[in-house]
Write a protein that binds this DNA or RNA. Structure first.
Length: 387
DNA sequence: TGGAATGATTAGGA
DNA sequence: TCCTAATCATTCCA
């Protein structure tokens, strides 16, 4: 009687909702769980340990776009160790979770088996019970994954924040950048090649060079007066370096189209601008170059002259002025003759359309005030032939 | 220690 | 993609 009753009960159970419910249990994989899994995999927390942390660190470094600083390796190792810590905690928690899940499932299965002696427990019912337990545990697993992801994100943001810490460029680097800036004041938009050259010379990245020029342009434009003295110093420096090292070139300047004028960027010589040889940007005489002899007297600290090898400011002024007179003649010669500056700029050696646009905007805002001399007279030179 | 200087980041535009 | 302009965050210096 008992077995017969048992089998009938089983049959009834089969026919009722149980079968329906079991079909409903075939749920698709949770998309959120998938996202978390993917993220943990990408961050190197889940999946194979090999290269995970370093790959993520490298990715973070690449994302920041910063240069290679000596501290980078320290920061990377710090990031890696923290990530490894998170990974370790995650895996140990995951292990605990799996263990608990298995233990609980076994426990419930045992209970059901025991109960099956007194009431009908179908295999499907057992399966259903197991899946319910697994679902409950997967919710916990999701929480674990979520908090792990959060931890990684926090670590990452901290790592990137730390990378924001800046170091001032070396004096020499700033000097090089300023030299370029003031010698190309009419168009302070270095080409890609010039940026690379500057970056190499300064020991910084190209993007840092771009940042520097971006900041410099803005700050110069905002406060031209403040930068006037600096501009003068660099103009004289450049003039001196050219006159002292290249008088022969001054007396017989290389035509703008000649080899070497546009192709290579020579910072130390900086002859590009003064010798009627456009630099990489096709620059000719810029505002700063023209301004040089105008505001020399009175505005220069004596130290800047002595450091350049002059005894007095008037000596430097004279030297510079004489030089610019030669320049002026050359300028006229080039602008009138075929293959002069017009040709050169038209050829657009290093001018990109963007640069031309930007240049226009720059000159509109900057050139008038910087070219205008406060002291009109014999020493006053208006030779902005770059326009 | 506060303000200036400066490198980096971000949003929006062309 | 590069630029400007604004802003942030850090470093430097009197």
């Amino acid at each position: 009687m008992k077995p017969a009753l048992f089998s009938v009960l089983c049959e009834i159970k089969e026919k009722t909702g149980l079968s329906i419910r079991s079909s409903q249990e075939e749920e698709p994989v949770d998309p959120q769980l998938m996202r978390l899994d993917n993220m943990l995999l990408a961050e190197g927390v889940a999946g194979p340990e090999k290269g995970g942390g370093s790959a993520a660190a490298a990715a973070a470094a690449a994302a920041s776009g910063g240069g290679v600083s000596p501290d980078n390796s320290i920061e990377h190792s710090d990031y890696r160790s923290k990530l490894a810590q998170i990974r370790h905690i995650y895996h140990s928690e995951l292990e605990k979770y799996e263990q608990a899940c298995n233990e609980f499932t076994t426990h419930v299965m045992n209970l059901l088996r025991e109960q099956s002696r007194t009431r009908p427990v179908a295999p499907k019912e057992m399966e259903r019970m197991v899946s319910i337990i697994h679902r409950k545990f997967s919710a916990i697993q999701m929480q674990l994954k979520q908090s792990t992801c959060e931890a990684v994100m926090i670590l990452r943001s901290r790592f990137l924040d730390a990378r924001r810490k800046r170091r001032n460029f070396s004096k020499q680097a700033t000097e090089v950048l300023n030299e370029y800036f003031y010698s190309h004041l009419s168009n302070p938009y270095p080409s890609e090649e010039a940026k690379e050259e500057l970056a190499k010379k300064c020991g910084i990245t190209v993007s840092q060079v771009s940042n520097w020029f971006g900041n410099k342009r803005i700050r110069y434009k905002k406060n031209i007066g403040k930068f006037q003295e600096e501009a003068n110093i660099y103009a004289v420096k450049t003039a001196v370096s050219v006159t002292q090292g290249g008088h022969s070139r001054t007396s017989s300047p290389t035509p703008p189209s000649s080899a070497g004028s546009g192709g290579s960027f020579n910072l130390s010589g900086s002859g590009d601008m003064f010798l009627g040889m456009p630099g990489l940007n096709g620059d000719s005489y810029s505002a700063s170059q023209v301004r040089c002899p105008i505001s020399l007297s009175g505005t220069f600290p004596n130290s800047s002259f002595s450091s350049l090898g002059y005894k007095t400011s008037s000596e430097a002024s004279f030297h510079c002025f004489t030089f610019l007179c030669c320049l002026q003649v050359e300028s006229l010669r080039h602008s009138m003759g075929p293959g002069g500056y017009g040709d050169n700029l038209g050829g657009g050696q290093m001018y990109s359309p963007r640069e031309m646009r930007a240049n226009g905007g720059w000159q509109e805002a900057v050139t008038p005030s910087s070219v205008t001399s406060p002291t009109e007279g014999p020493g006053s030179v208006h030779s902005d032939t770059s326009n």
